[in-house]
């Protein structure tokens, strides 16, 4: 299993760089464009939840983003030490046909669940929160290369 990791502060200003990192690792793993897009979007939504909910807007919390991959699987792991926030336990609002009925919340979680094959949340009172998201790669990866 190949591994690459970055650690950054819980500031939205760091999000674009974190997504660049995920995109680069997806490329190393040989993920398709669609799979890469899915991993990026799931990471975007998960990081935004951590910043807004776990750290409640604090900009100095620590977020550890780890990408792990083998031939047919790409795993994104996000660790924080904020308030426990379990995205897998939040209900997704029903789809609305009329603009007036559209509920704004819950979409990010819906994306994470829909785009990834598996998402798992673990809370450890001493160690913090860990969100693991798994994407199966449809064609298997090319020969592993060194992460940048």
């Amino acid at each position: 299993m190949n591994t690459a990791e970055i650690v950054f502060a819980s500031d939205l200003a760091n999000l674009s760089a974190a997504l660049d990192f995920v995109r680069a690792q997806c490329r190393f793993a040989g993920a398709s464009d669609d799979e890469t897009f899915a991993c990026e979007l799931a990471t975007d939504e998960a990081c935004t939840n951590i910043i807004e909910h776990a750290y409640q807007g604090r900009k100095d919390g620590e977020i550890r983003l780890t990408c792990l991959w083998a031939d047919e699987v790409f795993i994104i792991r996000l660790h924080d030490r904020g308030q426990p926030f379990d995205p897998t336990a939040v209900a997704v609002p029903p789809r609305a046909a009329r603009l007036e009925d559209v509920e704004i919340g819950g979409l990010g979680l819906h994306f994470m669940r829909s785009l990834m094959d598996e998402i798992r949340f673990e809370f450890d009172p001493a160690g913090g929160n860990t969100l693991t998201m798994v994407k199966r790669l449809s064609h298997g990866a090319a020969a592993p290369r060194e992460p940048r």
Partner: peptide, 19 residues
Amino acid sequence: EYISSAFLRVLITHMKKAK
């Protein structure tokens, strides 16, 4: 090239205002 739910939220909010 890329959007997330945050953009959709902005769009919905301002579309409601526009209408």
